[in-house]
Simulated assay, not measured.
Amino acid sequence: MKKSINTLLMLSLILIMVAVPTLASTVTLRLGHLSNTDHLWHKACLKLAEEVKERTDGVVKVEIFPNEILGSERETLEGIRIGAADMTITGETLGNWAPKVGILGAMYLFRDSEHINKIASGPIGEEIEQDILDKANMRVLTWFERGPRYLTSNRPIRTPEDAKGLKMRVPNVPWFIKGWQEIGANPAPMAFSEVFTALQQGVMDAQENPLALIDSAKFYEVQDYVNLTGHIRQWIYLVIGEDQYQNLTADQQKALQTAADIAHDYHQKLFFKQQDELRASLEDKGMEFIEADNAAFREKVNNLVYEEFPEYIDLYERIQAVK
């Protein structure tokens, strides 16, 4: 009897010793972002988490915190740098550490989605990602295209001449302010939460945003036209702290990258479908879509980078040269 008990104790001890390393080897990556749970970015993150779990047999878990639960975009980036977070979705804010990211805010830099894909997935994209790694100590896993920004108004805006003197709200971003001034409009920064009332009361004549925000903010109630200026086209990055990435095994790194590639394709498919649906929805709500002379608008801002942002001239010209 005593021998049996000793044998059972020995087997229990062995099982515990086997189990402890397995538990200790599990990894949880905290991914914080600013979007709500209905947003495409969040859906792409869920896809990423699902793929990572499957490809690592549950050893690596991606825990997602939407709605700025881990803090604002900048706060989450700071959190990654000190280990309080691991991953996030981020754009030009990274320019505070990696200057080359700032080029993404340039007006009329990208012609269309095909141009974006060639840059983001090509040598220039790799160069920007290397700048992020070298300067911010963060590794880019993939990128997601953002909806083009369009101008809404209560009169059709087809040419720069039509925009002359237009009182319009813009975010407090130098590219936006300088660019619309060059076009001839009268741009003014304003908190997004105040825009609807400003348009309703005539304090502002116009504003610019992607279709998703035009719809969710109900600008169709106070604006008649969506002018297809497409003045800003860009992407946003899914990043992980380099220290956190290096703490993963080689197989786990491979699984994470594969999952990110799948999440990218998943997002892009949803993105293009959503753009079509948003246009149809806004048209149903009474907004008219106006084709804009984008070549004329682009000509107005062509010299902006040379005059105001000389640090981006080389990168700007190389991006423009890609056909």
Rank of each mutant, 00 (worst) to 15 (best):
M1Y: 13
M1E: 15
K2S: 14
K3G: 14
S4R: 14
N6K: 12
L8F: 14
L8K: 09
L8V: 07
M10C: 12
S12Y: 06
L13A: 15
I14V: 07
M17W: 08
V18H: 09
P21T: 02
T22M: 13
A24H: 07
A24K: 01
S25K: 10
V27W: 05
L34T: 14
S35T: 15
D38L: 06
L40M: 09
L40P: 06
W41R: 06
A49R: 00
A49V: 00
V52A: 10
R55A: 15
D57F: 05
D57T: 01
V60W: 13
P66F: 04
N67Y: 04
G71C: 10
E75A: 12
E75P: 05
G79I: 12
I89L: 10
T90Y: 13
N96R: 03
N96Y: 14
G102I: 03
M107F: 10
F110R: 04
R111C: 11
S113V: 08
E114H: 13
I116W: 07
G122C: 11
P123F: 08
G125Y: 08
R139V: 05
V140A: 12
L141R: 02
T142F: 02
F144S: 11
L151I: 12
L151F: 06
N154M: 10
R155T: 06
P160V: 00
D162R: 01
L166D: 02
R169E: 14
N172R: 00
V173T: 05
V173E: 08
P174T: 07
I177Q: 06
K178P: 05
W180S: 00
Q181I: 09
Q181M: 12
A185N: 00
N186M: 03
P189Y: 04
M190F: 03
A191T: 02
F192P: 03
T197Y: 11
A198G: 02
L199T: 00
M204C: 01
M204W: 00
E208D: 06
N209Y: 02
P210Q: 00
P210S: 01
D215Y: 13
D215H: 11
A217T: 07
E221R: 07
Y225D: 06
I236S: 15
Y237P: 05
V239K: 01
Q246F: 09
Q246M: 07
Q246C: 04
L248K: 03
A250D: 15
Q252S: 11
Q253F: 10
Q257D: 14
T258L: 12
A259L: 10
I262T: 15
A263D: 09
L270V: 13
F272Q: 13
F272S: 13
F272V: 08
L278G: 09
R279L: 05
S281W: 05
S281N: 15
L282I: 03
E283V: 07
E291N: 02
E291H: 02
A292Q: 07
D293C: 12
A295E: 08
F297T: 05
F297C: 11
F297L: 08
E299W: 01
N303V: 03
E308Y: 06
E308I: 03
E308H: 04
P310M: 02
E311I: 00
I313G: 07
I313R: 07
D314L: 09
D314T: 12
Y316N: 13
E317T: 10
R318L: 13
K323P: 12
